[in-house]
Each structure stands twice: as structure tokens, then as C-alpha cells.
């Protein structure tokens, strides 16, 4: 019996392995979703970390004066750095200067002396524009000159956290769009912004937000309106394919895409196209009356243009 037991056990093991393996594979499919080290190490927690780092970047945007999860966050629902970058729709309300409320006790009052106590944005000078309790903001050091020039480059300090957020969750699209905005607008790093957006596009090939941002770079920095139009049209197509079927589609993005396409078409005097996009813009806008005025203006411009030149049919979208 002792001699036959090991081979018997081996045969039983082999039988179990060969019968269970196909079942195991079909249970979860191919479980190796990613070879990324962070994904393997952290699993789904990486998304939580990514979100934490995204918020951290906004905290840096405010030079540390930022609500915790226990404070009143109604004025910070949309990170200000993302809202200022038009990367997310601004849904903030309430007083952003006083999310803490009045001190609840002497410890709270005393403790506030050891933390940042003024609402500032890094692109406007950050801590350099603090107030010394007299309520009058003032600046220190080299910041005033940068502020004079229309924006402090200190906003670079949010970049490491945005980079970490993107590394941890490549599917978090607003990380790419927010970062790209600050890179190109305030730091003059257009190439870096474009490269980062392309990284984001590789991870999110159907992202209309990233395509839209790439279009902005093409239009505003590369001065290549044809490329910008292509990118925005692709963004619009992606939006219509992936957002439209949703119960609550992202109308903010549609507004951005349509408005830029409309303005580009207007610049290039492609009136029919412009009117089409203005229609989309009006549908998404919270102020349709304003857009209706623009439509009327474009109609007038088209009419004026057709009187000057012989009519040639504009290509319809």
C-alpha cells in the first residue's frame, strides 16, 4: 500500500488539475488584465489612489488650503484646477473662502493658526497673495512680476500629483485634459501637453475629451485649423457614439466641442457648417437665447457674404 500510494496520489492530482483548469479559466476569463506593476500591486485600490492624487493636485492648486472629507465641500465638488481648465463642468456652489465655518472650540481656533487659512489659486500667486490677518492680500518675493504677466508658473507644482494620478488610473480622462491645459496655457509646454494627451488617447481611444483637447492644441498653438477641425469632428463622432445613448449624456463636453467647431467654421466662413454646429451648441447650452443671437448673426453674415460673391454651395457636414 505504501508503495502504490504516491503514484496513486500523483494520478489523482493530475486528474484534478486537468479537469479543474478549463473550468477555472472559464470562470474569470483571462484574469491577467494588465501587465502593469501598479495594477498588479494595488488592484482596484489604484483608482482610489488615483482619485486621491487628483484631489491632492487641487489641494496644491490652493497651496494647501483645502477641505477635508469632514468639511463643507460644496464649493469644491469640481476641483478648481479642472474647472478653470474647462476640463470638467463647474458644479461648485457656496463659499469657497470659508469651508471650515467658524471655529467650534479653542483647539479648533488655535489649530487654524498652523494651517493655510486663505483661499488662493497657484496661477494667481498662491501663498504669496496671503493676508496677514488684516484682510488685505499682498505678495512677497518674485511672485508679483509673474502675476503682473498674467499667471504664476507656480502652477507647475500640481503636475507631479496629476502625473501620479494618470499613472495609477490611465482611464481617468480628466487627469489628461487638466494637465494638458496647465502645461500649455501657463507653462508654455505645448509639446509635453500634446505628448501627454496622446498617452491618454492610447489608454482611452474613444475619449472625446482628449480628442477635443488635442484639437485645441492644434488650433491655438499649432495654428493648424484643418487638423483641429478633424480632431473636433472625431471628438463629436465619439461623443455621439458613446455619450448620446446614455441616460445623462455629458452635455458640457458637447457644448465645448460644438462651440469650438462653430467658431472655427465661422472663422473660415463655412456658414452652413457653422449653423449646424451652432444648433448643437444651442441644444447643449444653459443659455440658448445667447446662442440664438449668434445664429441670427451668422445668418446675416452668410447673407452678406453671398451678396458679395457668387453662391457656391458650402459642404454640408
Amino acid at each position: 500500500m505504501a508503495r502504490t500510494l504516491p503514484p496513486l496520489l500523483f494520478l489523482v492530482s493530475l486528474a484534478l488539475v486537468t479537469s479543474l483548469e478549463p473550468w477555472f479559466q472559464s470562470w474569470q476569463g483571462n484574469r491577467a488584465q494588465s501587465a502593469d506593476l501598479l495594477a498588479v500591486l494595488l488592484g482596484d485600490a489604484r483608482r482610489a489612489f488615483a482619485n486621491h492624487f487628483f484631489i491632492k493636485a487641487d489641494a496644491y492648486f490652493h497651496s494647501g488650503y483645502y477641505p477635508s472629507i469632514f468639511d463643507n465641500r460644496t464649493a469644491f465638488q469640481t476641483p478648481h484646477m479642472a474647472a478653470d481648465a474647462d476640463a470638467k463642468e463647474d458644479k461648485n456652489s457656496g463659499d469657497e473662502d470659508d469651508f471650515l465655518g467658524p471655529p467650534r472650540d479653542w483647539i479648533d481656533a488655535f489649530g487654524r493658526r498652523f494651517k493655510p487659512a486663505t483661499h488662493t489659486h497657484l496661477d494667481a500667486g498662491g501663498a504669496h497673495t496671503h493676508a496677514h490677518g488684516d484682510g488685505r492680500p499682498h505678495t512677497h518675493g518674485p511672485a508679483p512680476k509673474e502675476i503682473e504677466l498674467g499667471g504664476s508658473a507656480d502652477v507647475r507644482e500640481i503636475l507631479p500629483w496629476l502625473r501620479a494620478s494618470a499613472a495609477l488610473d490611465p482611464q481617468k480622462v480628466e487627469t489628461y485634459t487638466t494637465t494638458a491645459y496647465w502645461l500649455r496655457q501657463r507653462m508654455g509646454k505645448v509639446a509635453e501637453a500634446e505628448a501627454f494627451l496622446r498617452d491618454g488617447l492610447r489608454a482611452n481611444p474613444d475619449s472625446h475629451e482628449i480628442l477635443f483637447e488635442l484639437g485645441r492644441i492644434a488650433d491655438e498653438h499649432r495654428k493648424d485649423p484643418a487638423r483641429a477641425r478633424n480632431l473636433w469632428e472625431l471628438a463629436l463622432a465619439k461623443w455621439q457614439k458613446f455619450e448620446l445613448p446614455k441616460t445623462e449624456p455629458d452635455t458640457f463636453s458637447l457644448l465645448q466641442i460644438a462651440s469650438h467647431l462653430a467658431l472655427l467654421a465661422e472663422r473660415e466662413s463655412r456658414w452652413d457648417e457653422c449653423l449646424h454646429y451652432l444648433g448643437l451648441w444651442k441644444a447643449a447650452s444653459p443659455k440658448p437665447a445667447e446662442i440664438e443671437k449668434r445664429i441670427t448673426e451668422v445668418h446675416a453674415k452668410r447673407a452678406a457674404a453671398s451678396q458679395v460673391k457668387p453662391q457656391t454651395p458650402n459642404p454640408k457636414p
Binding site: S63, F110, H128, H130
Partner: peptide, 14 residues
Amino acid sequence: ELFDVRDLIVHRWP
């Protein structure tokens, strides 16, 4: 936590 002035140092507050 009262003694934690990292935010002041990191962000160059006075």
C-alpha cells in the same frame, strides 16, 4: 496635529 506645519512649509506660507 497642531504641530504639523508641513502645509505652511511646503507652500511657502509665512
